[in-house]
Amino acid sequence: MPHQCTTCGRTFQDGSKEMLSGCPDCGGNKFQFKPTGATTNEQSAPNEQSAPNEQSASNEKSSPSETERSTSAPTDPTDVDATAASDSEATVDGEPPNPRESSKNTQSTDTTGSDLEKGSSDSTTGTEHVRERSEEDVAQASARSDVVSPDELDRASQPIDSESGAESRGSGDPDGPRPDIGELRDELNEQFESIRIVSPGKYELNLMELYDRQEYIISLQEDGRYVIEMPDAWGIQDE
């Protein structure tokens, strides 16, 4: 069972496309990869050692990450949307590979972080990840062939050290995926928002977006919601 849903624990075979649109049971869109060697065959001693190690690390981490998710979920639906989009249509609009990659990175930094806490060396976890990746490459490549470009696979198969180092230097380390969500939100704002509420009483407007949108914003609410009127859209659909 190479893939496991981090929410409900359902497992999927490697190469399964079922999970590409989210877990069918719970709708979760975060999965952890479990190499077959870790669960079924005992391929090598370090792998066997490190696999439960990682498993326990991820289990340890699962409760905080769940709390993080639960706190972030209600405030920011874009998180869920973006990762779901990255699962299902990553090649379509170019943005989703970032969230996908970042979620992968944060996952890996999580495990390396907790490994560090446990005292194991960073480099061993790094090489372990590289080995896992190289083992999964063929199957993963086929499973993801329609969603991830070869470039990204190459990048993903780089040693974890430098990647996690870069990540921890940047936004990933201090408080988990939150900064990524912020960045993502900024990116989405720049692309899609016609009216951005900077703070109460302070607005930034995207005139082209306002002009292009068919529906008409008739009222802004204090909490960021707004009321739109879209009679033209109804008319067009009726026709």
Binding site: I195, G201, L210, Y216, I217, S219, L220
Partner: peptide, 22 residues
């Protein structure tokens, strides 16, 4: 009052752009 005026002004811009389109 200033915050309210600001919100209404923003709605006004949206309305102006909508008129321009339609």
């Amino acid at each position: 009052d200033a915050v309210r005026r600001s919100r209404e002004a923003t709605e006004g811009v949206a309305e102006a752009m909508h008129w321009l389109r339609e």
